[in-house]
Design a protein around this nucleic acid. Structure first.
Length: 462
RNA sequence: GGUACUCUGGCAGAACGGUUAUGCGUGAGCCUGCAAAGCUUAUACAAGGGGGUUCGACUCCCUCGGGUACCUCCA
């Protein structure tokens, strides 16, 4: 598999013959997760599911930033401890992402649980004279790291002319950033430099190296993290180890809302709760995968609706396959093989989920075409089913299960409707159909048989 | 202002230096007792503006313009 690396700007191969180690910068737990978080996390979810489906072992580490001024502010605002706030939003995170059918990471390390690792990390930076302490805290000395700016393609002298740099007389250079902040406001920890808390970037350096080693395969996150977060991580980590940090930097584009950027001040932040409630997990996942991961994607009713229609086709396909029993099926093994191969090739080539989705929908269309032509024979159903199942699994899409009891009930009602129809009692037949509709069951009248489909209820559809 | 990314038909979104993307939408048809769903078929002949390289550019280069993100410990 090849991934376009932000640092080298080249497509770099991922060695999938051995365990692949991935570190994803997760969320700062001070508020609800939104559709932007969902996109990044879903992209990485599909990446790992694809690699796992190929038999590659994945170690997937995703952090929670649970020390941050935003958390502290929120805590004082709500009269709670920082821990209460972060715990609340961690719990919230899992509710949201379980709801989106995201597989849990191997581990979710938290900054607060790695303070000693962080202190040890900082000590070594000081020892190497890459960091120094002042009366405000410990700072990383940017000028000592000659490659500073290599990820974000920024030049140090240009950065210095930036207007928003805080004036801190204690710092040797305005670009230097805190790795340890001295503070008396909780939460605080003791350190060789005094009571305080870690800076923002240091946790990811310390934790990624702790769990994945000095030189792991993929480091990911949203594009907005390139600077300063990932730039600083590189500076700290490579100073610490003396080696190359992540092999590949993979950054996911932003989600805009109806063409505008998503921001609290505009008030257009779409929480995951909101989007799941309105569209359900499958459509959100399709939406998040509908563009190339590196490019921005625009959240709009129109696009969501388009994905809804596509999802309906998938549902139809699934139920047609369940009921398929035509006598003379068409052999399409070769075609399925090609679609399957195209799907994989798309993902292998810089993880192009949009192209992979077109293969997926091609499979769905092909299957639905055969069903319409009554050529969905018992022999070819197996091939399609297997392939569909494989793709659904990788994409993290799920068609809800139905209990046998419910199935029997449905079959019974359909039988009654068929009876009414043959007797031309159409009013009676329609009453039964309406009743089934209320159970979210739609009927499909084929020539020989009526089949039923449980369509996911989508609030936004009405 | 700087840096990065980006700009393809009504919308979304690909490939490729010379050939139809594809999907949604829209029109027509099939199926149906009627619907719904599904299927078939038709439809866009597009490349932000301007230059250049080339026999030929959507694809390479320059330039102008639009968009998005970031520009530091924190609004």
């Amino acid at each position: 598999m090849k991934i376009l690396d932000t640092l080298s700007k080249l497509e770099q191969g991922v060695d999938t013959s051995k365990k692949v180690k991935i570190y994803l910068c997760g969320v700062t737990v001070y508020d609800e997760s939104h559709i932007g978080h969902a996109r990044t996390i879903i992209v990485f979810d599909v990446l790992r599911k694809y690699l796992e489906s190929k038999g590659t072992e994945i170690e997937f580490i995703q952090n929670f930033t649970d020390v941050d001024d935003k958390i502290i502010n929120r805590a004082s605002l709500e009269n709670k401890s920082a821990e209460q706030i972060s715990n609340k939003y961690i719990e919230n995170y899992f509710t949201d992402f379980d709801g989106l059918n995201v597989k849990r990471a191997t581990n979710y390390p938290k900054a607060t649980e790695h303070i000693s690792d962080i202190i040890q990390f900082i000590e070594k930076l000081i020892e190497k004279e890459m960091a120094y302490s002042t009366k405000n805290g410990v700072y990383f000395s940017v000028s000592k790291f000659s490659d500073y700016g290599k990820l974000s393609k920024k030049k140090i002298d240009e950065l210095q002319s930036g207007a928003r740099i805080e004036i801190d007389e204690e710092k040797k250079d305005p670009l230097d950033f805190a790795v340890w902040k001295l503070s008396d406001t909780d939460p605080t920890w003791d350190s060789p430099w005094g009571k305080g808390r870690p800076g923002w970037h240091i946790e990811c350096s310390a934790m990624s190296i702790k769990y994945l080693g000095e030189n792991f395969d993929i480091h990911g996150g949203g594009r907005d993290l390139i600077f300063p977060h990932h730039e600083n991580e590189i500076a700290q980590s490579e100073s610490y180890t003396g080696n190359q940090f992540a092999k590949i930097w993979m950054h996911v584009g932003m989600v805009t809302i109806e063409g505008e950027k998503m921001s609290k001040s505009i008030g257009n932040v779409k929480s995951i709760k909101h989007v799941i409630d309105n569209w359900g997990p499958n459509i959100i996942r399709l939406f998040c995968l509908s563009g190339h991961y590196s490019k921005p994607i625009d959240y709009s009713e129109e696009l969501l609706k388009e994905n809804l229609i596509k999802w309906r086709q998938v549902e139809t396909c699934h139920y047609e396959l369940i009921h398929a029993n035509n006598e003379n099926g068409e052999n399409i093994d070769e075609l399925i093989k090609k679609i399957s191969n195209d799907f994989d090739c798309a993902l292998e080539d810089d993880f192009n989920t949009h192209l992979a989705l077109s293969s997926f929908f091609q499979l769905v269309k092909e299957s639905n075409r055969l069903a319409a032509d009554e050529k969905l024979g018992k022999e070819n159903v197996g091939t399609i089913k297997t392939e569909l199942k494989r793709m659904l699994q990788i994409l993290g899409l799920k068609i809800p299960e139905i209990s046998n009891q419910e199935k029997n009930e449905i079959d019974e009602l359909i039988k009654n409707r068929e009876k009414a129809r043959t007797e031309k009692k159409y009013q009676d037949a329609d009453i039964i159909r309406d009743k089934l509709n209320e159970m979210n069951i739609e009927l499909l009248d084929h020539k020989g048989q009526t089949i039923w489909m449980r369509k996911e209820k989508i609030k936004a559809e009405k």
